[in-house]
Design a binder for these strands. Structure first.
Lengths: 165, 165
DNA sequence: TTAAATCGGACAACAATTATCCGATATAAA
DNA sequence: TTTATATCGGATAATTGTTGTCCGATTTAA
């Protein structure tokens, strides 16, 4: 049981998009290059975040991706569910019915309540922190100098799309 | 990201063992038959629970498995870690170093703290309930009649090993 | 009209989980 | 002491899930 690395990658991708000027978009190959992810696969992750209304895509020449919401309103949890999907960590496989020699499948399971509490508890922590917080952590952290360089670099390599603001 | 079904199976297996008379053991094929799991694979799960000091195995004719601790002292969490192992749900893949063009791998990651909190939070809920609680739930639940039948059936099919008490 | 980007589906490579098999070892009982 | 019946552990196969690739279709700036 392990979280997809795609979640971590996507969080950093969203942080990157948060560094762009208003209305600017970043090419997906540019994003995956900074992240160190495979471009073709990472495009699919970006696609999921589009579907989850976290980011917006712009077609065609000078196209790319930008945030759809304010960074305060994008939580780790949102990215987690966008990438991992909405299926829960646990789902009963109907052992109890089997064990009780029940013919009908009642889907009862004495673990369900505890398991869904546990999952809710996990998710609640992921709801606490947002992209604005994380970006600020980077801005003042050990890497703050390199972070400024990255920020400037991004503002050169992005495409501004005034019509889409 | 999904919990192994082996965890659920193992929880029910431990509940079964909790129904045996003192000192009695149950054959692994008998266990997996009730659970509805593949015998050869499920034996390996039982093995992990032996290593985790949750249950005890008895070799040879009339051998099998029984609890090692009192049912109050076996929590869902214990079974979870026995089966899933101790690796954490999240481990950084070093994206941050890549993103900052860092040469050395500092393994820094702004997600780590949140992620380990989330995991701890999930695990804490799993620590709440124990096998005694779950057994009681079954004893008074919708299936209580069938549960009694199961209990009697088990007391016939187990092997008593007075020397090992 | 062209070049450059996303979109979506099909599919391949890789990894983790589940399942099977078998020889070795331990033990109760004949 | 022998035999039948368990667990033990390693090798390996089958299955499923994740990650990665490719390409034709579509969209849009220039």
């Amino acid at each position: 049981m392990k979280m997809k690395t795609g979640v971590e990658q996507s969080v950093y991708a969203v942080i990157l998009l948060n560094l762009l000027p208003k209305g600017a978009v970043l090419h997906s190959e540019e994003i995956s290059r900074h992240i160190g992810a495979s471009p073709s696969y990472f495009q699919k992750l970006l696609r999921r975040m589009v579907k989850a209304d976290l980011i917006v895509s712009v077609h065609g020449t000078k196209g790319g991706f930008r945030l759809k919401r304010s960074p305060e309103d994008i939580r780790i949890y949102d990215i987690y569910t966008a990438i991992e999907g909405r299926q829960s960590l646990y789902s009963s496989s109907g052992i109890m019915d089997n064990m009780m020699d029940s013919i009908e499948t009642s889907e009862q399971c004495i673990l369900r309540e505890t398991m869904s509490e546990a999952e809710a508890s996990w998710k609640n922590v992921l709801k606490r922190e947002n992209i604005a917080d994380l970006t600020e952590k980077l801005r003042v952290g050990n890497y703050n100098e390199r972070f400024k360089v990255l920020e400037k670099e991004l503002q050169k390599s992005c495409s501004v799309q005034y019509e889409h603001i």
